[in-house]
Design a protein around this nucleic acid. Structure first.
Length: 415
RNA sequence: GUGGCUGUAGCUCAGUUGGUUAGAGCGCCGGAUUGUGAUUCCGGAGGUCGCGGGUUCAAUUCCCGUCAGCCACCCCA
């Protein structure tokens, strides 16, 4: 391999076939999000570091060791966004959007995390994202999950993913449970892994989804989160579940499901798969009623999810084909000019068309074949003199003369 | 950040028990075919054997380091 010009670790070029796959996912997503009456929002791919520090939780791994943070020429600390929600929350506050509640946003674009790459994990990756701001009712939870489910269905991934669902309860419930959990884990501290012992002080809920065998044994005996939910939290979750049932959206309760960022409350969910190696989450999100307030805005409930485009792409069986071009094969100098004109007419008429820059007829026909062209248009002195064009069907091999003045409409109608 | 495996042509891979000019298939370019595309035939280009250092008369091969890829841990989309 060339040693010199390498892409930065964990980044990838999307060549046309991959780019088409990504664009297909994005197109399906946009179509569905628009049908759910979400509006597109684009926030910058970098923000003041503070935006992420304060929102994600200072002890989370993303903040402590995965952010791409740098000092710009003005001396400000900036960070490439590791996720989308914080940026949207910031935009909500910056633009004074509290006047327009409720708001439904969708977005997509690159995210950055400084992690060791592996299957389904890159340093620059792309996410789809939806957020609903200003709706405290379970209907928003249901709608956002339904949108995710709809997306899976439209991408043909329903059989490959499973919806896992949990509730973290409101702030009071979460705090109560946390205290009980810390007490329980402290009693079993000796049996926990080093990682888990470390997390006990920082983020005890995360011990629940540890993969360590010993940890799992301890977790199995831990008090259940559901037992510590207050009435309001229990009712809220019951409403979410009712809604999903009514819509026929299957899910599996997973009481160990804990999301990575501190801002989550109530509903937490993930569409997971077993087909991506160690990575399981394909689409994940939850409710974050305290986030905007903690960032300095008016108290505003929110819920949303993010979904990794690369991960979706790896599961996708459908690979969209590129348009097959019509390729013009000019023969002679006069035809080269006439060819350019015809090329322009075809393109303006909506036909994917191309014309090579050099080569004799044989060479050009080979090029047309390689370009996966469905038709070749041969244009030489004979055709020009007769006011026609020779249209060759490259799949069947039939060749016919078509009047020059109808060829464009004939081909555009076919497409 | 930690660990395991792997780096030979654009791609997929052989190979050298350390020894003159490192191979194949596919792909690419040209010709047979300057008005006709799979195929076929002929010819050609393309490698400082990831990079750096060490051992050796000699390293693509052995050793060390480094970078990268893959996979896993951690964590997450």
């Amino acid at each position: 391999m060339m040693a010199k010009l390498q892409p930065v670790r964990g980044t990838h070029d999307l060549l046309p076939a991959d780019a088409r796959r990504h664009q297909h996912i994005i197109a399906v997503f946009r179509d569905i999000a628009e049908r759910y009456n979400f509006g597109q929002i684009e926030t910058p791919i970098f923000e003041f570091t503070d935006v992420f520090d304060r929102s994600l939780g200072e002890t989370t791994d993303v903040v402590t060791k995965e952010m791409y943070t740098f000092i710009d020429r003005s001396g400000d600390s900036l960070t490439l966004r590791p996720e989308q929600t914080a940026g949207i929350a910031r935009a909500f506050i910056s633009n004074g959007l509290a006047q327009n509640l409720p708001l439904k946003f969708y977005s997509h674009g690159p995210m950055f995390r400084h992690e060791r790459p592996q299957k389904g994990r890159q340093r620059q990756f792309h996410q789809l994202d939806v957020e609903i701001l200003g709706v405290a009712e379970p209907q928003a939870d249901i709608e956002v999950i339904a949108l995710g489910s709809h997306l899976m269905e439209s991408l043909g991934l329903t059989d490959k993913v499973m919806l896992e669902l949990n509730t973290l309860g409101d702030t009071d419930s979460r705090k109560a449970y946390r205290d009980v959990l810390v007490e329980y884990f402290s009693d079993h501290k000796a049996d926990l892994s080093e990682e888990a012992q470390d997390r006990l002080g920082r983020n005890p809920l995360r011990i629940l989804d540890s993969k360590d065998k010993n940890d799992r044994a301890v977790v199995a005996g831990a008090p259940a989160m559901s037992a510590y939910l207050n009435a309001a939290s229990t009712d809220f979750f019951a409403s979410v579940v009712d809604g999903l049932d009514a819509l026929g959206i299957a899910y599996q309760r997973n009481e160990q499901l804990v999301r990575g960022f501190d801002y989550y409350t109530h509903t937490a969910f993930e569409f997971t798969t077993e087909l991506l190696g160690a990575q399981s989450a394909v689409l994940a999100g939850g409710r974050y009623d305290g986030l905007i307030e903690s960032m300095g805005g008016q108290p505003t409930p929110g819920i949303g999810w993010g979904s990794g485009i690369e991960r979706l792409a790896m599961l996708l069986e459908f690979v969209p084909e590129a348009n097959r071009p019509v390729v013009i094969v000019p023969i002679g100098d006069a035809a080269a000019k006439q060819g350019l004109l015809l090329l322009q007419e075809l393109r303006h008429a909506g036909v994917t068309a191309d014309m090579g820059a050099k080569g004799n007829v044989g060479k050009r026909m080979k090029q047309a074949n390689k370009a996966n062209a469905n038709y070749a248009i041969l244009l030489g002195d004979d055709e020009i003199a007769g006011g026609v064009v020779t249209l060759r069907d490259l799949d069947g091999g039939e060749q016919t003369e078509v009047a020059r003045d109808v060829i464009v409409s004939q081909l555009s109608n076919r497409a």
